[in-house]
Design a protein around this nucleic acid. Structure first.
Lengths: 138, 138
DNA sequence: GTAACTGCAAAATATTTGCATCCTT
DNA sequence: AAGGATGCAAATATTTTGCAGTTAC
C-alpha cells in the first residue's frame, strides 16, 4: 500500500501537513486531480499558494506527472514506482470519462509507437482517450 | 489555397475584420496558436475579448480544433476540410518541438488504435508527441 | 432594418512573487 | 540552530459577463 510519508522520505522531502494531506488525496483518488479539485476536496484548509508550490515540488520530484487537457487546466496523477525525477515513465494512456468526468491512468496500457514523418525525433509521447469508462458503462 | 473569406462564408459566419485577421494568422502559421500567440502576432489590435469569442466561434464551427497541453493553455489549429462542426476529424498526431516550441499538426499521421481494458468505450483520442522537429533537426 | 459582432468596463478567477514566521530535521 | 516550508498580502495575468454602439448582410 502506498504511504504518503514513505513517498516523501524516499524523495528526501520534509514531511509536512500539507504535503501529507495532498499526497493522501492523490492516493485515495482513483484518478487525476487538478489544482481546483485539490482545493475543493482537501480536509484541512491550506493556502492556495501552498497547493501550487506543493504540486510543483511533487512534479519536480517525479511523484506526480502531468496529463494534457484542452481546458486551461493541468491534471496531475500519481506516478508509479518506476517514475523518477526528470525521467518519467508515464507513457501510459489516460482516459477521460465523458459522464463522470474522471481522468484515469491506464497504467497497463502503454502509448503505442507511431511512425513520424522523416526528420522528426520523438522524445516523449502522451495519449488521451475520451469516452465512457468501465464504471459508467453499467 | 485556403482563403479566410471562403472559410467564413462556407460556415455562414459574417465576414468581419477580426475574423479575417485571426483566420489569416492561422493560415499563415504552420502550427498551432494559443490565445496569447494571437494577441502577440496579430497586426491590427483587436480587443482581447474579441479574440476569445472568435476562437470560441471558430471552434464551435469546426474551423479550428484544440490540442491538449500541460501548461494551462489551450492550443488551436486549423482543421482540414474533413472537419465539421461537432464531428471533428482531427485524430491526427500533434508534435511539439522542444527547441523551436512550435506545435505542428501531422495531418497524415493518424492516432493509432489502442486496446483498452474491458468496459472502456473510446470515443475520441488525442496524441501529442514531443521531441525535435524536422526543421530544428538540421 | 435587424441580427450579430465588437469594444469597453468591470467582475471573477487563476497564478506568481516577496517576505516574515513557523516547522522539520 | 539552520534551512526550508507555509501563510499572508499584493501584484500580475487570465477568462467571463453585460451592455451600448457599430457593422455585415
Amino acid at each position: 500500500m502506498l504511504d504518503s510519508i514513505d513517498i516523501l522520505k524516499r524523495n528526501t522531502l520534509s514531511v509536512t501537513e500539507s504535503r501529507k494531506a495532498i499526497l493522501d488525496l492523490f492516493i485515495d483518488t482513483d484518478g487525476a486531480l487538478a489544482h481546483a479539485d485539490i482545493e475543493k476536496n482537501i480536509s484541512n484548509d491550506f493556502d492556495r499558494v501552498t497547493v501550487y508550490r506543493t504540486l510543483q515540488t511533487f512534479f519536480e520530484n517525479g511523484i506526480i506527472h502531468q496529463i494534457p487537457t484542452t481546458d486551461n487546466t493541468v491534471l496531475y496523477a500519481l506516478c508509479k514506482d518506476k517514475c523518477e525525477a526528470g525521467h518519467h515513465h508515464d507513457e501510459h494512456v489516460h482516459f477521460i470519462c465523458n459522464l463522470c468526468d474522471k481522468t484515469i491512468c491506464l497504467d497497463e496500457v502503454t502509448v503505442p509507437q507511431v511512425k513520424l514523418p522523416k526528420g522528426f525525433k520523438p522524445l516523449q509521447k502522451a495519449m488521451v482517450v475520451k469516452g465512457i469508462c468501465a464504471e459508467c458503462k453499467n
